[in-house]
């Protein structure tokens, strides 16, 4: 199960719209100009995620994790390297959060809000495309290593799991932070997405 080139391009466009919507919301909330780069997209089996994100191995990563359900169901995770996440939270709050470069409780909450906006905007795009609502759990924030994050995605899956990996960059105040989204869905959900994209292209 995979998407053809046209469907992948259409999906990337969908995420691009979602990310720009997210950037606009974040800019409005923080009063700062926040730019999100055109996303790069890879679709793979969830067990192959590690191979796709080799640079994220080694250090601790700040993750915002939401479960989504409805027309399509799965796990959505936003991943940012911990020090970059602290910088992002600090810049977005004009130095109020994470002053010493550590993600304190308030900084984690800011990150949860950022993650909720970014993941929500992208997942809502699925709902819009499928013309069916997609609902989300409250985001959970964790600081952990990539293998631990991936383990939490790989459990309890009855069907083959696919991952849509979306790589982008958040830029503000001349600082850039790489951000990755992993949207893990089952084969049935990916088939629904594929069909909706094919209909959209047609």
């Amino acid at each position: 199960m995979n998407l053809d080139d046209f469907e992948s391009d259409a999906l990337a466009e969908l995420f691009n719209v979602g990310l720009h919507r997210a950037a606009a919301s974040l800019s409005e909330i923080t009063g700062q100009r926040i730019i999100v780069d055109m996303p790069r997209l890879v679709i793979c089996l969830t067990e192959d995620i590690e191979k796709q994100l080799p640079n994220l191995f080694g250090g601790e990563i700040a993750t915002v994790h939401q479960v989504f359900g409805g027309a399509v169901a799965g796990d959505a995770v936003l991943l940012i390297e911990q020090d970059k996440a602290a910088t992002l939270a600090k810049l977005m709050t004009a130095g109020e959060a994470a002053p010493s470069g550590r993600l304190d409780q308030s900084a984690r909450e800011v990150l949860a809000e950022i993650g909720n906006i970014v993941l929500g905007a992208c997942l809502s795009s699925f709902g819009d495309m499928l013309q069916m609502p997609v609902s989300f759990s409250i985001p959970r924030i964790h600081i952990e290593s990539l293998p631990n994050i991936l383990r939490s995605l790989l459990v309890d899956s009855d069907e083959v799991q696919y991952a849509v990996i979306v790589a982008t960059q958040f830029r503000l105040s001349e600082v850039a932070a790489d951000g990755f989204m992993i949207i893990a869905v089952g084969a049935k959900s990916l088939a629904k997405i594929s069909k909706a994209l094919a209909d959209r292209i047609a």
């Binding site: 409005e28 909330i29 923080t30 939401q66 939270a89 977005m92 709050t93 109020e96 959060a97 308030s106 900084a107 909450e109 800011v110 949860a112 809000e113 909720n116 929500g120 809502s124 709902g127 609502p133 609902s135 989300f136 759990s137 409250i138 985001p139």
Partner: peptide, 23 residues
Amino acid sequence: AIARSAIEQAVNGSTMILSQRLH
């Protein structure tokens, strides 16, 4: 307005967070 907008989004089906640091 931002808080009101968050509530409006929630009644339309979105989960929202308003962190203390930002709001």
